[in-house]
């Protein structure tokens, strides 16, 4: 039983690793930090796998660790701004012909952390509000409130751009 959960967890990690990386990257916007986050999240998850009680909940359980890890790195980076030696600053990925629509993606990243987490999990990862509540440790109403707050802010900003 115990062994099964460990194996299920590993299979899940191998399968969804690209998703983990994208989510981590969306917070820190650079490759090295994103890789560190994924690595730490996996180590922590495997170390604490006993706290995963139900194989069906593996995604929400893992994302919780991943999101916490991402936010912790983000918090740390804010406290200690890195000297701008040029090595850390990666050029964001751009595709031609996107200039205007691109704004929404950037704006989501500028939202307050709790709000952007809800938006990202809801729209990028297509999770249910219930799952998001489990991941963020907030109750369902709080998650809804954050979602609407986020959408409202985004709508306002876009109108400003359009006007």
């Amino acid at each position: 039983m115990e062994k099964d959960l460990y194996e299920i967890l590993i299979e899940y990690i191998l399968e969804d690793q690209n998703r983990f990386y994208r989510l981590a990257y969306s917070y820190v916007q650079n490759k090295d930090d994103a890789l560190d986050i994924v690595q730490n999240a996996i180590c922590k998850a495997l170390e604490r796998y006993e706290t995963l009680r139900d194989a069906g909940a593996v995604r929400a359980w893992f994302y919780r660790i991943l999101v916490n890890e991402s936010l912790a790195v983000l918090k740390k980076k804010k406290e200690v701004p890195l000297p701008d030696d040029g090595a850390g600053g990666e050029i964001p990925y751009h595709e031609k012909g996107y200039e205007i629509q691109d704004d929404l993606y950037e704006q989501i990243n500028r939202l307050n952390e709790e709000v952007q987490t809800v938006i990202k999990l809801r729209f990028y990862e297509e999770m249910t509000l219930q799952e998001i509540a489990q991941i963020t440790g907030a109750n369902l109403n709080t998650v809804k409130a954050r979602l609407y707050r986020g959408l409202k802010t985004l709508k306002q900003n876009i109108q400003e751009v359009d006007a």
Binding site: L14, Y21, S26, L35, V38, Q39, C43, Y93, E95
Partner: peptide, 23 residues
């Protein structure tokens, strides 16, 4: 559109190695 851009975040070659070694 934002999701499309998110989905297009390039996956670095190192990722699978990092994941594997963490496991």
């Amino acid at each position: 559109d934002a999701k499309k851009r998110y989905d297009e975040i390039p996956i670095p070659e190192e990722l699978s190695g990092v994941v594997r070694s963490a496991i």
